[in-house]
């Protein structure tokens, strides 16, 4: 069932035997996964299979019960808060609901890290924020609006601008197209691919959306029962004879994946 996971000499990011339990339920069961520098990996899988937990453990927003998570070969689990803040300066995240700060304008959201963590003067930070907004095809007029005044797609774009403004080495995308219409979703996918290519960053995304997965990913891995059960190039996703992947791709109720409803 499980196809061999490529062992990279120097992965940018690696989960090594990561386990995470919630009460009596094991969500990640000794997860082994790695991403090569400059590559874009997309994790697919059904609801409740641990995709978000995988990203949250890598970000340090959730502590694994066992295992190691390494960035450039260095452990990121047992580190101080100060070290974690430094680590975050190398990371950009686009959250599922964009997670923009309601009380701040769009440019203040985009420039949040620059102003509050990097000490960039507000004037310069605003210029850089507007530049980042233009890169995700949002007009400068949007900069002074509040998140509640923007559509879902525009909020995702602003979230993407916030993720890339400090030119991070690693980008995480949590369900980037959830809740968007197909045209807006395609535009977001294209923007994500553009930005990842432009920055040369390593990217890790999670999604249910197979079109999104094939657009933004170099490789796709399928997570099921807390383990990676298939991994391969994005182009091979629809051609594999893996019964789990095949059922997921074809969206069939019958198959080895027990459906939740």
């Amino acid at each position: 069932m499980t196809e061999a996971t490529p062992q990279l000499a120097w992965p940018k990011l690696a989960w090594k035997g990561v386990t995470k339990r919630f009460e009596d339920r094991t969500v990640l069961d000794g997860l082994d996964l790695s991403v090569a520098p400059g590559k874009s990996l997309v994790i697919i899988g059904g609801s409740g299979q641990g995709k978000s937990v995988t990203i949250k453990t890598a970000l340090g927003l959730m502590r694994p019960d066992a295992g190691r998570i390494e960035l450039d070969g260095k452990d990121t689990v047992n580190i101080s808060e100060h070290a974690r803040r430094k680590l975050f300066s190398r990371v950009g995240v686009l959250f599922q609901g964009a997670a923009l700060f309601d009380s701040l304008t769009i440019w203040e959201n985009v420039a949040f890290r620059l102003i509050n963590a990097d000490g960039v003067p507000r004037k310069e930070a605003k210029d850089r924020a507007i530049e980042a907004l233009e890169q995700v095809r949002l007009a400068p007029a949007v900069a002074d609006r509040f998140p509640s005044e923007l559509s879902g797609g525009m909020q995702k774009r602003a979230g993407l601008a916030r993720a890339v403004v400090a030119q991070p080495e690693i980008l995480f995308f949590d369900e980037p197209t959830t809740g968007l219409d197909p045209i807006t979703a395609a535009a977001i996918n294209e923007l994500i691919s553009d930005q990842v290519r432009r920055l040369g960053s390593t990217a890790v995304s999670i999604t249910h959306d197979l079109a999104s997965a094939q657009t933004i990913g170099d490789e796709i891995a399928m997570l099921h029962d807390g383990k990676i059960i298939w991994r391969g190039p994005a182009a091979e996703l629809r051609m594999t004879d893996n019964a789990y992947v095949s059922q997921f791709v074809k969206g069939r109720a019958e198959g080895p994946i027990a459906h939740a409803v």
Partner: peptide, 17 residues
């Protein structure tokens, strides 16, 4: 509300305590 909409997690990932 910030906790429920992941804004607090987002703040941490933006290197801000």
């Amino acid at each position: 509300a910030m906790r429920a909409t992941e804004q607090i997690d987002a703040m941490r990932t933006l290197s801000t305590d």
